[in-house]
Design a protein around this nucleic acid. Structure first.
Lengths: 363, 363
DNA sequence: GTGAAAGCGCTAACAC
DNA sequence: GTGTTAGCGCTTTCAC
């Protein structure tokens, strides 16, 4: 790493007082105006400054204007850290995601941030790949007001972890024990359409590639897959199911590996469903590598409909889920939960999107 | 939204004192143990508790153990908000990105978070699509220690904005005015290889699709493109350059639109370069839509090498940039800058990755 | 309508 | 080696 001279003039610029008459208690620290400076300049008390800033009590037009001017003069910004300390509200929420690299989570985070920002909240990233204990600690230490556990890995969190959050009054969405609020996608119609569509194309042996443990997580889509197999008279064979392995992941690599396992089982599979689109991409790669064609030899369907699903070779049949909307709704729930101390349940519908990665079963 | 009964038993559970003898000043607020509770239980002063927790002074083994036990008993976590107020360090940094939906930014954010988390920092998301002024305010209010402006839209921030950050002592990486530290990719070799490669394939009319204004941002890649055109004797024609339009964006939509503009100009183009992979995806879509083939009619090359570039139809030739590493290094720089009050410059090399979206020029 | 002052949980002198 | 205490910047009773 190349060091170079400080360009901002360091100490000299730090001592430049911007023309104001701030009294600096500590010359070496940041010198920003506080409510006291503002109060002094406006010739009022700090309480009054507080009231005009927060609109928390009527203040005469005259003083109000003086305060506003002083605020402007100093370019004064309230110190949220100090405020949080007294109000016990950090206006800081967290989103726990598997992998922010996956546009699926990116969209959720984006939707969430949109609403959070609009309401004066800030959202911090907690990556579920790390040590979950340390994130719990972080959430607690930072006095976060809420957490959206938008991760398939929420089972990494013990009941004790979650309870310590609840105990501290953290608003929870999608905790693995259903203690807080719940928001989820409803795959029922979309999955039924998908299974019916595949059955209609003559598929008998449809596989399910999962990146996560199936039973413990109660994956709704897997249940619907099983129902579909039954309903449409498909072959029920546990060799057609590839479960995730520790350390569970649902990326393209996981899809690639799962598909190779499936192929090695010689199941005469003609269609595969995956946990998400990323896994579908990996599965497609594995299929092509063996010289098989999509969809002529094997049809592939993903889930999520991330942007890229449209651009793959061939374009991916998948289930479209309103990701950004989930982020927004999760934030609304957290906002409500913080204020009302109530829990909510929200179900969001999904759709089947048919593209070219699925076609008639090989005869 | 369906309301349902609070499942956690609300007030009753909030009054459940967990067996501890915390004195609750305010029964309706969160009741978490403070250092005072811990001190009392351990029979020491609050200062001593502080010292064992922060390892800031020697404390006798005996007291140390007592403190640790009390900490464990209460499951005590230091209140970072209070700590920040006194230390004037929030251990909170921000990353400003265009679009967290783009895996390019996802990877950067992930690398950053990895290092941040390891050092007790938390990273918050600031989406550049929103009102930049409000993010500046937020950064200031929250007393953030540092900001990585990992966005092509940093020109949205005025000099005044940036100076207010500097003035408050916020460590800056990649601010648009070069006041703070700088981290960037070096495209020189990769771009030269790409231009030489295309020239070798017989391409004479190579286009450049940008999502951002070209001159003002000083896009290094565009300069290198121009150099390459010169060096390899390609056709220099401003019709081959499509500049971004306000509101600038570099997503697949922007690529689609830019490609359509290019096609409408009848330039007999045989190869196109784009600002990033997302734009390349859009460009490919536009090309295919007109019935042209890739790469037989038009070659396409992107930049970034996001995961999906490998899976498109056809797989995309692109420039591989170590995104996660940039995130890590940016965080290291911020860490250093916070402690050393120095600025740094870091250049990261990139590579050309040739896939099937580029081929011989149409004759 | 406005101000004084207590207190949020912590750190860092400074005493002892 | 350990304890006391004065703030950090803010909100919020409670007087005036």
């Amino acid at each position: 790493m190349h060091k170079r001279e400080a360009m901002s003039g360091e100490t000299s610029s730090l001592n430049d007082n911007n023309g104001s008459n701030l009294k600096l208690k500590n010359e070496t620290k940041r010198k920003v105006a506080t409510r006291e400076d503002v109060a002094k300049m406006a010739g009022v008390s700090v309480a009054t400054v507080s009231h005009v800033i927060n609109n928390t009590k009527y203040v005469s037009q005259e003083l109000r204007e003086k305060v506003i001017e002083a605020v402007r003069f100093y370019n004064y910004k309230p110190n949220m850290v100090a405020r949080s300390l007294t109000t016990k509200r950090s206006n800081h929420i967290g989103i726990i995601v598997n992998d922010i690299t996956n546009p699926y989570y990116g969209e959720i985070a984006q939707g969430m941030e949109e609403i959070a920002h609009k309401h004066g909240y800030i959202v911090s990233l907690c990556l579920a790949s790390g040590d979950s204990e340390s994130y719990i600690t972080s959430i607690l230490e930072r006095q976060m007001d809420g957490i959206f556990m938008a991760t398939t890995r929420s089972y990494d969190f013990t009941r004790k972890h979650i309870e310590s959050l609840v105990h501290s009054g953290v608003a929870l969405v999608n905790d693995p024990y259903g203690i807080g609020s719940v928001i989820k996608f409803n795959y029922k119609t979309a999955m039924d359409n998908l299974m019916s569509y595949l059955a209609g194309l003559g598929h008998k042996r449809v596989a399910y590639l999962s990146g996560i443990p199936l039973k413990s997580t109660g994956d709704q889509r897997f249940s619907l897959y099983e129902e579909g197999v039954e309903k449409y008279g498909l072959v029920s064979d546990e060799n057609l199911v590839v479960e995730g392995m520790y350390p569970y992941s649902t990326n393209h690599r996981a899809g690639y590996d799962a598909m190779n396992i499936l192929l090695s089982r010689n199941t005469r599979v003609t269609a595969v469903l995956t946990t998400n689109d990323y896994m579908a991409f990996g599965a497609m790669k594995a299929i092509k590598k063996t010289g098989l064609r999509i969809p002529e030899d094997i049809s592939v369907a993903g889930c999520d409909d991330i942007i890229l699903a449209e651009y793959t070779d061939p374009p991916l049949t998948t289930i479209r889920v309103p990701k950004k909307e989930m982020g927004r709704q999760a934030m609304y729930i957290i906002l409500n939960e913080i204020n009302e101390k109530k829990h909510y349940t929200k179900i969001i519908d999904t759709d089947l999107v048919i593209r070219e990665s699925t076609g008639p079963a090989k005869t």
